[in-house]
Simulated assay, not measured.
Amino acid sequence: MSHTAAERPFVKMNGAGNDFVVVNALERPFRPTEDQVRALGDRAGGEGFDQLIAIEPSGTADAFMRVWNADGSMVQTCGNALRCVGWLLMEAAGSDRVVIDTAAGPTTATRAGDRRVTVDMGRPRLDWTQVPLSEAMDTRGIELQVGPIDAPVLHTPGAVSMGNPHVVFFTDRQDDGFVSGSGSLIEHHPLFPEGVNVGFADVQGRDRIRLRVWERGAGLTRACGTGACAALVAAARRGLADRKAAVIVDGGEMVIDWDAETDHVLMTGPVEIERTGVLLF
């Protein structure tokens, strides 16, 4: 099937509900403007997505994954998208393992069953300079609160970078209004010079965490892979959960395993293809 210069075939996919438009840019560069990304991401008038993904050539890996948020900003990586891209590359190559490079560094994806993929998300970055924070703090519980000083509704979140910055509050308050209101407030807090993804984690057992995430640049999403990894790491560092747990997000369930030997975080979860289409530019 040939396409004109203005046409770009895409695959619409989701990983546990976190949805993407994935464009093959292995043979032809794909460089949308911020305005074009925003128009495409608009769920009313465009294709609608949390993130736009381009699969590009790489000299050191099977491919390079470029990620834009729905607001047009470019981000370093996306855990759920890595599973989707990994699955596409493994299907195309007939292999069970691929290496995907990202702006946050290379990642390995392996098959974990029918339309299930495990992604090695690498070591969590736990020093305050790595998150990054604007001042020195113990990232197991940073000095940040929401609400009245004497009775904060949220306080002392863990801070973790999984290639992108996260804070994780431990709370059973997870309704849309609360998550959106608190998340949008914290996303641009001066403590986070690069902005931050905000997790709301309800630890329901040593091996089970219910999570909602306000994503930097994307808002409330149905799943956030790096957010699930960050929530497990933050909970384990506080002694609230084991190093391996199911993390339940709005769109499904992921298994996160912070391997004690390698210090790497392994994320296993589903991949779904929704439809294919063509972008006209």
Rank of each mutant, 00 (worst) to 15 (best):
P193T: 05
V233K: 10
Q145R: 15
A236H: 06
G122C: 12
D172P: 01
A230D: 09
L126R: 01
A234C: 07
Q174H: 03
I142Y: 00
V131W: 04
A201C: 08
S180E: 15
S134H: 07
H155L: 06
L185I: 00
T221G: 14
M137N: 14
I209V: 12
A230H: 02
W128I: 09
L133T: 02
D175E: 14
S182F: 05
I248L: 15
G181T: 10
I142S: 02
V179I: 01
R140V: 13
A228F: 06
L211M: 09
V167D: 01
P165M: 03
P124Q: 05
D175K: 04
E215W: 00
L133D: 03
T221A: 08
A235Q: 12
E143R: 15
H166P: 11
I209Q: 09
D172A: 10
R208K: 11
A223Q: 09
V160E: 03
L240Q: 01
L220K: 09
G163K: 09
H188R: 15
E143S: 14
G147M: 11
D172E: 10
V233P: 05
A236P: 01
C229H: 08
A231G: 03
Q130W: 00
R243K: 14
S134F: 07
A201G: 04
D127M: 06
L240V: 06
V213Q: 07
P193G: 06
P124Y: 10
L154W: 07
G239W: 03
A159C: 02
T139N: 02
Q145I: 05
A201N: 12
G183E: 01
M137K: 11
T156M: 07
G205H: 06
G181V: 06
E194L: 15
W214R: 15
A223S: 13
V167R: 04
A136H: 13
D127K: 11
S182Q: 11
F178L: 15
N164Q: 05
R243Q: 01
E194V: 09
V160F: 01
Q145W: 15
L220E: 11
L191P: 12
P152S: 07
E143L: 08
S182D: 05
P165H: 00
V146F: 02
G163W: 04
I149N: 05
D202K: 06
D242R: 13
I209K: 06
R123A: 15
M137E: 12
I248Y: 12
G181D: 04
G122W: 08
L144Y: 01
V153H: 05
W128G: 03
D172H: 05
P157M: 11
R206V: 12
L240P: 09
V146G: 04
A201P: 08
M137D: 14
V196H: 03
G239N: 10
T139M: 11
